[in-house]
Design a protein around this nucleic acid. Structure first.
Lengths: 322, 322
DNA sequence: CTGTTAGCGCATTCAC
DNA sequence: GTGAATGCGCTAACAG
């Protein structure tokens, strides 16, 4: 029995001949190792938990793909849980994942509250945040610099001569994303000496429909903006369509830029100029970091583990000089 | 110890008072049940395996969301594995999933070969196919009728007076999807007495880029088609863009229709007329069926378990009368 | 209603 | 290099 365990686990201390015999017996009997029993005995499940807001959202599904590819590479499987950015659900799934004895946890979600931190603290396995950060940087994370990304996007507009720049923002309640991107907008205007106009900022919900809707508001203004910065590609595409539906041309009449670079950004006309956020890489790097933490390859989880991946302006056809 | 097990598992045979005491102790000690040990002892893991071609593809990620929601409702978790429609990888992940003692398996993939059937047969837990079927209907499945969906799509074109209808097909090697949709196209033409022209059919890979590319070919034909039927929305959107880039108007000059109804279909201009395939429901129904099978609520896995969900024509703005 | 017992299928000592 | 013994943390009989 111990010998079988050795060959199954590739332990070298087995005579090649008996190894062969064991393999034959395995084949003949259709023996399949029981990973649950192995997990109980070895205290390792080679499984990691992934909590994600919504797998059907393309942003997150790309991150998930990055996670799974790297997980696979290191022979981990992933248990996937949608939590819809609902705090209660997030904490609940973290606990069930921990009960299932995952070897590590990847967390994507909304705001990281004290309760989240508390839940993570009860974990005996490493946790890394993915595409988000906690305000105190208490948990390892990998993300982009959302504020700088937004700043760079708005700057593209400014460099193209725009000074009337509206923003379709996400919720300001989310410090890691919505608020940070709004801050980037504000600072870019500030740096260019452009006064911030309150009527040039509307709050959406990140989605297409809200881009569609909020753009109508801008068009009713006496002084229409000449450019719109949307916090997400989806809202930007919504904006473009409202503009087009109203007979305006993008980018000739109004320019549009955003941040994300979802696949759809190059599948619309005009193709969207946007700041690319490397979704796949965020997932991949986060998973890689998690493997290091699980193997204790890295000294201390609390040092240096705030990875910021670079973003990049992708020039396409939705921004024009004026 | 047994009593603790009882309260944790909500067994009614516990005096309310001792139940309360146990809960207090659990709270005080921060006790967290070990689901792996439970799984070993009870032979149930409350986990199901999901093999999926690519979670970052919106078609599949919507199915996955349907699966997870219902799984969650029945207190199952899902282990998600991407297999990219690669036979070898598919079979490998099925085996690791089985080693992990999942209580059931949901399979989305490419062609179901004999080797797949063989792998499923070694499973002691139920398997259901999701968004695909095997040719012999040996495995329970939930899907739409792809042939009829394609037939209906082409018929919309015919009813609108089109007789020169080209098709951008998926691979004909995939009987459950690509080939079935091609068959639907063929039969619709046949039923309308329209001869099939070989130069009106091109084979793509389901994706945007191939729609983009193959449409150019149709435009170079002496007799241009007046309508294009694409096997997927992505290819249809690609077709529309090539048409527009060449200065043609959709649907005035050329009509386009397809099947899928991905979210993006209503996020392009013109909005895409397409046959809706209920992705979320396919996942949800498949998971629900799997729960029944796992609970042996249903007599025999091999009877009646070929669920066909209805599809529906969604009229938008990419088809015109001529 | 509660406590005792015996595995679940492995990995991991420890002898040999 | 191999086999025997122990225990991972729980559930499932079984007594009481």
């Amino acid at each position: 029995m111990a010998t079988v365990s050795r060959v199954v686990n590739n332990n070298p201390n087995v005579k090649p001949q008996t190894r062969k015999k064991v393999f034959e017996a395995i084949e003949r009997l259709g023996y399949r190792p029981n990973a649950v029993a192995r997990g109980l005995a070895s205290k390792k499940t080679t499984t990691v938990g992934v909590v994600i807001p919504d797998i059907s959202n393309s942003i997150f599904s790309e991150v998930a793909r990055g996670i799974e590819d790297i997980a696979n590479m290191y022979h981990y499987n992933i248990i996937l849980c949608n939590a819809d950015k609902k705090k209660e659900k997030e904490i609940r799934v973290v606990n069930t994942l921990l009960e299932k004895q995952v070897d590590g946890l990847l967390f994507m979600g909304g705001v990281i509250t004290e309760d989240h931190l508390q839940a993570f603290k009860t974990s005996s396995v490493p946790v890394v945040l993915c595409a988000t950060t906690d305000e105190h940087h208490a948990i390892p994370s990998v993300d982009i610099n959302h504020e700088k990304a937004a700043f760079d996007a708005v700057n593209v507009l400014i460099e193209n001569g725009h000074r009337s720049i509206a923003m379709i923002s996400g919720t300001l309640q989310d410090p890691a994303n919505g608020f940070a991107r709004y801050q980037g907008y504000k600072k870019a205007l500030e740096a260019a000496g452009i006064p911030l106009r309150e009527d040039y900022v509307r709050i959406g919900n990140y989605r297409y429909e809200s881009g569609l809707e909020l753009t109508k508001y801008f068009l009713e203004l006496d002084e229409r903006p000449t450019a719109i910065f949307a916090a997400t590609d989806e809202m930007a595409i919504g904006a473009i369509h409202t503009l087009q539906d109203e007979g305006l041309k993008v980018p000739e009449d109004i320019s549009v830029i955003s941040v994300d670079n979802i696949r759809m950004a190059s599948m619309v006309r005009p193709q969207l100029t946007t700041v690319a956020q490397p979704m796949y890489d965020i997932g991949a790097v986060a998973m890689r970091l998690l493997t290091k933490l699980m193997n204790k390859e890295t000294k201390d989880a609390s040092e240096l583990q705030q990875v910021i991946l670079p973003h990049e302006v992708i020039h396409r056809n939705s921004v024009a000089h004026r």
